[in-house]
């Protein structure tokens, strides 16, 4: 299927001067949420645009909610607040969306990518149901799902889902291309980069199941 291209609209909390795209990454401490934000930012930067990755977390502990906002713009990014109106939400953990409101402020036409073994239709139903802390009342959004933990176990041997999810971001959005993801993975992880590149490619291939 065709990769979904999110609308590039004016954001930055209602201030309209600069077009800004925001991507929210969410997961649990230890899954590489902050690293994923950094890697995405580096990839964006190397593609000639401006990037800012801003983690929002409390006293750090493995397993608790961790979030990171990636901001992308053609202009230098002035916004220095953790509130965001993301057009893309990437959930690295199969369950945390139930317990934490990771969809706050999400824009119409959003892309939601979740690491889960469930189908996109089932996830969309759950997000619309209002039974969980993450709730979407938007008219239009697209859900992609992939078993990133399974991909990571196979490719890396550890349940660290972030690099598989980066591949999925490359497939489902125009934030970044797979080539750029591969380049930053090799640069960041050295010899371990190849296994992560395999995970990213598998993640890229896995998001064929959007609900549109």
């Amino acid at each position: 299927m065709q990769p979904h291209v999110p609308r590039r609209t004016d954001r930055a909390g209602g201030v309209s001067a600069v077009a800004l795209e925001e991507v929210r990454l969410a997961g649990r401490g230890g899954q590489g949420v902050v690293t994923a934000g950094e890697l995405l930012g580096e990839a964006v930067l190397s593609s000639g645009r401006h990037a800012q990755s801003l983690p929002t977390f409390g006293p750090e502990r493995r397993g608790a909610l961790a979030q990171c906002t990636l901001r992308v713009s053609d202009q230098p990014i002035l916004l220095k607040c953790s509130s965001a109106r993301p057009s893309v939400v990437v959930c690295l953990d199969p369950t945390i969306w139930r317990y934490a409101p990771i969809t706050l402020g999400v824009q119409e036409d959003a892309v939601v990518i979740v690491n889960t073994t469930q189908s996109p239709a089932k996830l969309e139903e759950a997000l619309r149901s209002g039974r969980f802390l993450s709730e979407l009342t938007l008219e239009r959004f697209t859900v992609y799902t992939l078993d990133a933990t399974g991909i990571a176990m196979e490719a890396i041997g550890r349940p660290i889902s972030n690099t598989a999810m980066l591949g999925a971001v490359a497939a489902a959005t125009d934030v970044i291309g797979l080539d750029d993801v591969e380049t930053v993975l090799r640069a960041r992880f050295g010899p371990a980069g190849e296994a992560n590149v395999v995970a990213a490619r598998s993640g890229f291939d896995a998001v064929g199941g959007g609900t549109i």
Binding site: G63, A64, D93, P94, T95, Y99, P159
Partner: peptide, 8 residues
């Protein structure tokens, strides 16, 4: 219930 944190 911190058991919700498990991946494995």
């Amino acid at each position: 219930l911190t058991g919700a944190w498990r991946s494995m």
